[in-house]
Design a protein around this nucleic acid. Sequence first.
DNA 1: CCATTTACGGTACTGAACGTACCTTAACCG
DNA 2: CGGTTAAGGTACGTTCAGTACCGTAAATGG
Lengths: 198, 198
Amino acid sequence: MTEASGRTRRRGAALEEAILGAAADELTASGYAGLTMDKVAARAGTNKNAIYRRWPNRLALGVAAYKRLATTVSPPDTGELRGDVLELLRRANRYWSSPLGAILRDLIAAAGGAAELLAQLQEQSDDAVAAPWLAVLERAVARGEAAPEALRPRVATVAIVLLRNEFVVRGAPSAPDDVLVEIVDQVFLPLVRRRQGA
Amino acid sequence: MTEASGRTRRRGAALEEAILGAAADELTASGYAGLTMDKVAARAGTNKNAIYRRWPNRLALGVAAYKRLATTVSPPDTGELRGDVLELLRRANRYWSSPLGAILRDLIAAAGGAAELLAQLQEQSDDAVAAPWLAVLERAVARGEAAPEALRPRVATVAIVLLRNEFVVRGAPSAPDDVLVEIVDQVFLPLVRRRQGA
DNA sequence: CCATTTACGGTACTGAACGTACCTTAACCG
DNA sequence: CGGTTAAGGTACGTTCAGTACCGTAAATGG
């Protein structure tokens, strides 16, 4: 049979949508390891040519497909800094432990330092990661719980970076809650709290 | 020709040595991406059977070969905490920027969360990473430069974890010195310094 | 409204590697 | 010295990424 039954032949944006959708489906179904170009083409009802005309390789397609699966979060507001921070960490822990987190880790691994692709995964590089932490800290500063010096990305994101380290370097499938508490109480809070001296 | 010319047929430990050596050579010559089982076998003057009898797959061989390339470091002693810490970070930065660092990153990536292999790469898991930092901090505590509460692995290793994050997640080929200084002055020193309050 | 160009669909390949199977033969061991 | 173990040799099976070509539907535009 020529073409897929009675349907009209798709082009341009419509086809691109179909491919991305198929790739996203494959990602959720089989993870990045199971994302093969042939399967994506088949699921999208097209062929590999159409894919390679748009993305140079499998990784680029994977990154593009992941972006439509990623969601953004709104910062919590428990009324107190420690609660907010723990909540942010627990969310992150859940996410990294989830199938989506596994996909993200695989993509980061596959990118292997290709800065351009890594930046796409962070969606606006640092800002998106730092935003909720800065939001939470700003309220804490207003309440007098945190020092204004804490309102710098490097400082604000310390906790999340430490947690991510557990996953990327230690390979934990999920970080125990003790670890989150330890990060908050041993590192994050001592660091951002209003200091009397120096 | 049968066998490799006149040489006697190696077995057991001798052959294992030869394979590991060949794998290490391949790693330094072509990186982990270029480490193929066929090339290792050829360079070791044997065949893939002998390799697969000892390591279950390419990654395991890569990790084993890497371990013989890795070296350990002794902690610096500049007489002052900030100097020691910057020196440790600069060393780490150089290492991660080097070909060996690239191999390590690829291996971590390829392990993709296989905790067992990742642990081998850290050589004794945390301890080896934390040791020099704890050593440097102990001297600082003795001098009154740092608070005793800093002598915990989670706290002591904050700086190195933040730097590693630059490589793994941001994909920088090398971190600018500014970043190291930022990590030290904005995060590490404020965190470990003797605090008057609370 | 028709000719031309663009880009899809179909299909077949190439090439790289991993991992396996199987047999022959040398080294070790009691 | 005979039997067992482990090398060496070699040939596959498989899986995929990425490429090449060709015929044809859809846009384009005169």
